[in-house]
Design a binder for these strands. Structure first.
Lengths: 203, 203
DNA sequence: CAAGTTTTTTACCATTTGGTAAAGTTACGA
DNA sequence: TCGTAACTTTACCAAATGGTAAAAAACTTG
């Protein structure tokens, strides 16, 4: 078994290539809508070669979800409990908007998965997201109790931030129809969202 | 050809049964993730019988999207340009929250389709959604110019309403993990969202 | 550089899946 | 009630798809 040996350079690189190709395809076509042949072609490998590196299509998908969840959540982790509350929140919102703009594939990968009931992700939501979320809710509650932010339900506040920021990545196809030819769509969105939450959060 | 004859009672009823079964499955598994056999079993018919009523799986999906888009957009249409602006907006937001609660399958059907680039829906977004959206943006702009609502980008305002309200249907799996055992989740969400937009929109 | 190990390629297979053909059954108007 | 049109069922098929077996090639290391 090679499972316990440390991975070779080729192994590391090829697994990265596979994940990169699979990310775009899963984001665009969903898990069932993506075939191993498509992934193989997108990364210039042959199908059995994928299976050499990942034991199944599902294994690729799960590895992607696991690998990307932590970076996806890093802005939440980056909030400083001792910082200036309003600016910490605005900073978080800015980072989320930036992620929507820079990493729409990741956003859509998770959107697909969660819309469909998170069948391959529920344990990770429970074990990774939930603790982080609870901790962050507690921090926000403290900020509100200290009068630094307007009083509101912290969990729903976070949901609304996720909803609005991720919408720009997840529903981009719709937005492109409704705001065509706007060459600074992303800029307008970022200004709007920041202003919106600034107004909402000011105590 | 029977295409031009008016549909019989059996035809109307069976097409409805097929759509109802397919809606739940497409919402949960996506287009490619749903099989004709699953749809057949869910509505108690045999696979060739589906094909008797719809010429392909794709035809079922497209018919669903078309049939449901107009009801899905009805709250937008129901806004009264001559009404009291703030209450019209809040009324719209309430109806959207109600739709998320009552029709999560529809919400997820559209979410799946749009996240994946709206491959079977772009023409309808263009021909049905776009005109309605433009009209509504114009009304909201007028309301803002009249000083009845706070000034902001009307298109992004509508996006934020869609994002927040539909999030509760589309990301329900995640919310269920993060707010477990909250037996009045929907109520809390509705209060939060209404308060949020009231604060944002007040001139 | 030889022996062993890792990686790639070719050929293949079983299952699933969207869809068809055609016979059988039911409903319905004249 | 009878004939025809609408509908349902059974049996089937070709293509797509996830995955395997095993040989060939390339790389690594003593």
């Amino acid at each position: 078994m090679t499972r316990t040996r440390k991975p070779s350079r080729i192994q590391t690189e090829n697994r990265r290539r596979i994940r990169d190709a699979a990310l775009g395809l899963f984001a665009t076509h969903g898990f069932r809508g993506t075939t191993l042949d498509q992934i193989a072609e997108a990364c210039g490998m042959h199908k059995p070669n994928l299976i050499y590196y990942y034991k199944s299509k599902e294994a690729i998908h799960i590895d992607l979800l696991n690998t990307l969840l932590e970076e996806w959540l890093s802005p939440l982790d980056a909030m400083d409990p001792e910082g200036e509350p309003l600016e910490e929140m605005i900073g978080y919102i800015r980072r989320k908007m930036e992620m929507s703009r820079l990493y729409p594939r990741e956003s859509r990968l998770f959107a697909n998965e969660i819309v469909q009931g998170a069948p391959r992700m529920l344990p990770h939501l429970e074990s990774i997201l939930k603790p982080l979320f609870d901790r962050q809710c507690a921090i926000i509650t403290r900020w509100m109790d200290d009068g630094k932010l307007a009083q509101m339900h912290p969990a729903h506040l976070i949901f609304s931030i996720w909803a609005v920021t991720q919408h720009y990545a997840d529903f981009e196809a719709q937005i492109a129809v409704l705001l065509p030819g706007d060459d600074n769509r992303a800029g307008g969105a970022e200004v709007f969202v920041e202003d919106m939450f600034r107004k909402l959060l000011a105590p």
